[in-house]
Design a protein around this nucleic acid. Structure first.
Lengths: 214, 214
DNA sequence: TAGATTGTTAATCGATTAACAATC
DNA sequence: TAGATTGTTAATCGATTAACAATC
């Protein structure tokens, strides 16, 4: 099918549909309606239908969408089928956690190796190489790595980011809570824990206020 | 000052301003303009000004905002001043990484203890207790814990979530990529790595396509 | 056929941006 | 005074929701 232009908001919702569909038992009904999906995820059914229309080639009135095809369509659209190789810089605790997380495979992400200015070991528990920083460029060029993950302390993030770009990396996933300055053609996705925490603590604040009144 | 109603979009941008302001040298200029902030973060200056208007009690034309007061205003607004106690369930790799991350203090988050069905040790490296699941309720009630962090495998997330709610927890921060069903008054914030990955891999897809054409 | 469901077109809502007056 | 900057009011943009026709 021909993909239409897709907005970020839709893109962010797609993984949710997929995870839900995957969570259903293998031998569940062959078809699933947008209504059912919407209810399960607590969303509006029109929104679900509109989103699905963008990535699948349509459901059938009265019946719904073919469950398995839908799953395939979404995961293909999200690029979970063809894996992306990535490298990670900063083999601290968070870095190690990400390196060891096997779940990324399901999203088509394959972390090849970690880099650190001061590697404590030369391999992770599951055998991925931990290399010194000065091998970064060579490694990236040789393996045509386009994605980099930053898990270094805040103070070094920009510097590491610049190095990555110099190595030909085009997409950066960062866990350091700083704004990174990059050229236009580079995408930075910040896993900003501070944002989430802000939302949560505002909620608690509101909750507490409410219970004061009652 | 009297706080106005604030939207989620604004709330998500506030931590960014604060981190940037904090990154400036202690002895930097006393005042900073919205224009300067906007440029540094690559945003529109009107947006910055509007956002700041909601949390600070105003800047001075031609001069800008008092830098230190602004920082205080934002962090107070975000509740970083009064710490929130939280517990974490799932002392695996990710759980351990979060437990050990000292940076949360700066956001007013204090993880008191971890729980696990099968604790490997009874303390983390930095001395936080790792307790068996059946002590969860007691602990939460005694310490009046309102925030819970879920770092268990996907399959157990809903179950753990239910348990947390039964223990009086009102805000849940989850790292499991599943939709969690909760009552209305509970806030779930999902640290959804799949979403970020989706954005990143779409970007790479587009990049690759582009380079094909050229 | 009747009813459930899809997909589209129009209406609403909210958030961002632009224009401008106020101020130091 | 002139110019930089703030804050507000109006215009634009995009995304969500509502209404409805099409379909099996």
């Amino acid at each position: 099918m021909q993909y239409k232009e897709i907005s970020k908001s839709v893109l962010k919702r797609l993984p949710g549909y997929l995870t839900y569909l995957k969570s259903l038992p293998e031998d569940d009904a062959t078809y699933i309606s947008a209504t059912a999906l919407a209810n399960a995820l607590g969303m509006g059914e029109v929104q679900v239908r509109k989103d699905l229309a963008l990535v699948s080639d349509g459901g059938r009135p009265k019946i719904g969408y073919h469950r398995k095809s839908l799953m395939e369509d979404i995961s293909q659209f999200l690029g979970y089928d063809n894996t992306t190789d990535a490298i990670l810089v900063g083999a601290g605790k968070l870095g190690q956690a990400l390196l060891g997380y096997s779940g990324f495979k399901a999203y088509g992400l394959n972390i090849l190796a970690a880099f650190d200015t001061n590697p404590v070991a030369d391999r992770t528990e599951d055998g991925k190489p931990i290399l010194p920083m000065d091998e970064l460029e060579n490694y990236c060029r040789k393996n045509k790595v386009l994605m980099g993950i930053i898990t270094v302390p805040t103070a070094y993030a920009q510097q590491v980011c610049d190095q990555m770009i110099a190595c030909g990396i085009k997409a950066i996933w960062t866990f350091a809570p700083v704004h990174l300055d990059v050229p236009e053609n580079i995408l930075v996705q910040s896993e900003n824990m501070a944002n989430s925490l802000a939302l949560l603590s505002m909620h608690l604040k509101a909750q507490i206020k409410e219970s004061d009144i009652l």
